[in-house]
Computed example of a mutant assay.
Amino acid sequence: MLDVRRLFVRERAELLALLRSLSAEDWARETVCPGWDVHDVVGHVLNDYVRRISGSRDGFAGATFANDETLPSYLARTNDEFVRAARQCSPELMIELLGHLGPELDRLWAGFDLTAPAPLDVSWAGPGRSPAWLDIAREYTEFWVHQQQIRDAVGRPGADQPELVHPVLDTFLRGLPHALREVERPHGTAVRVVVTGPSGGTWHAVSDEGRWRMAGDETELSAGATVTMRPDDLWRLGTRGITVAEARRRADAEGDPALVEAVTALLAVVA
């Protein structure tokens, strides 16, 4: 279990300090998110705050699915609708709203039973009910990644301390079993992912009776494949800030090619 709740205050403080320092030109800079500038990404983060408070605190279902609409297309449509509406808001107002709603979101997380079923399942971590702690960790990665996208757009590195970055990597790598789901290997076959630097670590997934599972600290496992990546490359791969091909070019990999290919196609967003 990964409890990231204490990190929201710090991540948000870093974000608000960044936003208050931006010029009008910075707010209009394009980001890696297609069609969205910095103002739009901030509007999207505000949407995340509003959506989670409305849904988890107030039990409000929000927008309904259109006929035959898939989850990815539903999210793309509703996210775009909010971002377009937020273009009517000044940067100052959006900063004020984030600062006001953030503590309410913190109070919401604090009341969760981390071992209970999540209000929103984490589809990229596999089928079935997700625990609440994973849902909350997914939200932390969402906020942190969008902050990094803003920082990339305006050329302001930051919020990159290991204690802020490591939980993002840890959360994304909980998607390893799902990424490996179509690769069948004998029971006990292990995959090792090594992320370099002080933010990184070593993660294992192991084949267990026809399924893959995270293997914790079972470092005595003999890996059928090992993939080594830098932290920036891993989170950008998971959010498709870089392509799978580029991630594979940057990674160091050895062992079973099919396992390597599955790991380096890791996806940690709904797409």
Rank of each mutant, 00 (worst) to 15 (best):
L16S: 04
N79G: 03
W133I: 04
L173S: 01
L98D: 06
P119C: 00
W124F: 15
L16Q: 07
A125G: 14
L234C: 04
G128C: 09
R181T: 08
L15P: 15
N79I: 08
R249K: 07
V32F: 09
T264L: 15
L98K: 02
A76Y: 09
L7Q: 03
L18Q: 08
Y49Q: 15
G255E: 09
D152T: 10
A76W: 11
S130N: 10
V193A: 06
F143A: 10
V38M: 08
A262L: 05
L267C: 11
S23D: 08
L267F: 00
S199M: 03
R77A: 06
L22H: 06
G210N: 01
H204T: 14
F8M: 08
L19W: 11
G35T: 07
A24I: 00
H44R: 09
R107K: 14
Q88C: 04
G238L: 05
V263D: 06
R249C: 01
W203M: 11
D3G: 12
S54Y: 02
V244N: 06
S207A: 15
A85T: 11
A110T: 02
V260C: 12
G59Y: 05
E96F: 07
E11D: 13
S56N: 13
E218L: 15
E11T: 12
G126D: 10
T243G: 15
L93R: 10
A28I: 03
G175E: 10
D37W: 00
G155R: 04
E184M: 13
T171I: 01
E220L: 14
Y49I: 00
G175Y: 14
I150R: 13
D37V: 08
R87F: 03
M94S: 03
R20Y: 04
H146R: 06
V194Y: 01
S130G: 07
T226H: 06
G128E: 11
F60W: 05
A66V: 06
A76R: 15
I95Q: 12
R192N: 07
L71D: 08
H166Y: 09
P186Y: 10
E69R: 04
R20L: 05
E163A: 03
V42K: 05
V191D: 13
G59M: 07
E163C: 01
M1T: 14
L71C: 02
H44D: 02
N47Q: 15
T196R: 09
R87I: 06
V38F: 09
E218C: 08
T115E: 15
D37S: 05
V183Y: 05
D80H: 14
W133S: 11
R84L: 08
S73E: 14
A159T: 11
R129L: 12
V191Y: 06
V9I: 11
E104L: 11
R129I: 03
R138Q: 15
Q147F: 00
V191K: 09
A116G: 12
P103V: 03
L259M: 13
R248A: 08
D68K: 02
E25H: 05
D135E: 10
W27K: 00
S73F: 08
G175D: 13
P162A: 00
W109I: 07
R52Y: 11
V195N: 05
D233W: 13
D135P: 02
E30N: 02
G201E: 07
H100Q: 07
G175T: 11
S222M: 14
H146G: 13
P117W: 07
S23M: 00
L164S: 03
W203K: 06
S222N: 12
L267W: 08
T196I: 03
E142N: 13
G210R: 04
D106Y: 06
